[in-house]
Amino acid sequence: MNRIREIFDIGAGFENIIEWLTEEADWLFDFIALVVEGFLEGVNWLFHFPPALVMIGLFSLLAWRVAGKGVALFTLIGFLLILYMGYWSETMDTLSLVFSAVIFGLLIGLPLGIWASRSDSAWKIMRPVLDFMQTLPAFVYLIPAVLLFKLGPVPGVIATLIFSLPPVVRLTNLGIRQVPLEIREACRAFGATPKQMLIKAEIPVALPTIMAGVNQTIMLALSMVVISGMIGAGGLGNVVLKGITQLKIDMGFEGGICIVILAIFLDRVTQAFTTKDKS
C-alpha cells in the first residue's frame, strides 16, 4: 500500500503541478497579477476617494432606488455605524476586493454558463469541476494562490474568484435551459439567428435566474474575502484575524458586525434586481 502511495501520491502530485506552474508559467501569472492589481487599484481608489459621508449617501440612494425605503434606512444606519466604529477604510477595502472578484467572476462565469447551456458535453465536463470548486474547503485555495501570486490582495481576489464562480455558471446554465421551448421556436420561426435568439430572448428570459446566481456569487465572494485576510488581502478579514490571533474580543466582534452589515446590504440590493425582473 505504501509503495503504491509512493508512486501515486495525490498530494505530492498536486504539489508538483503547482511547482511546475510557478517555474514554467510564471510569466502568465505575472500578467494575470498585473491585470488584477491594476483593476483592484482603480476600484479601490473609486471607493476610497469620496468622503465617507458622500459614499454612505450614495449607497443609501442606491438601496432606496432598487430595494425600497426599509433597505435604504438599514443601509444608512448600518454604514454610519461602521464609520462610527472606525472601520470605514477596511470596509471599503473589502468592498473593492469583493467587487473586483465578482467582476472577473462574471466575465468568466457568464460565458461559461452560456456555453454550458448550449452544449451538453461542455456541461458534462464543467459539472464535476464546479462541484469540486464548491466543496473543496475554502482555505485550501489559499495555498496555491499564495504560491502562484505571493501574498497580498491579488491572490485574495484570485482565490475569491475561484471559490465564488460556481453559482453564476450553474444558474446561468439553468436559466437558459429553462427558457420555454415555444419561445425558442417562436424566435426561430420569425427568422432569428442563434446570436439574436441568445441576446433578444434567452438571456432576458433567463435574467431573474441569472441574477439569483450573481447574488449567490457575491455572497460567496464576501465570505471568501474575509478568509483571504489570512494571506494578507487586507480589509475586514484582517480585523477579524487580528481579533482571533490576539484574542481581542472587541475587535473581532466589531469586525464581524461590519461584515454582517455589508453582507445584508449587498444581498438585499442584488436580490431586489432578481425579483424586480420577475414581476
Binding site: E182, E185, F190
Partner: peptide, 20 residues
C-alpha cells in the same frame, strides 16, 4: 431565415411571447 422573415409567420398554442 429569409423565408421565415418575409414569406411565412407562425402563431403558437401557448403564444410564445417574450415575457420581458
Amino acid at each position: 431565415r429569409e423565408l421565415r422573415r418575409y414569406k411565412m409567420s407562425m402563431v403558437f398554442q401557448h403564444f410564445g411571447l417574450l415575457p420581458h
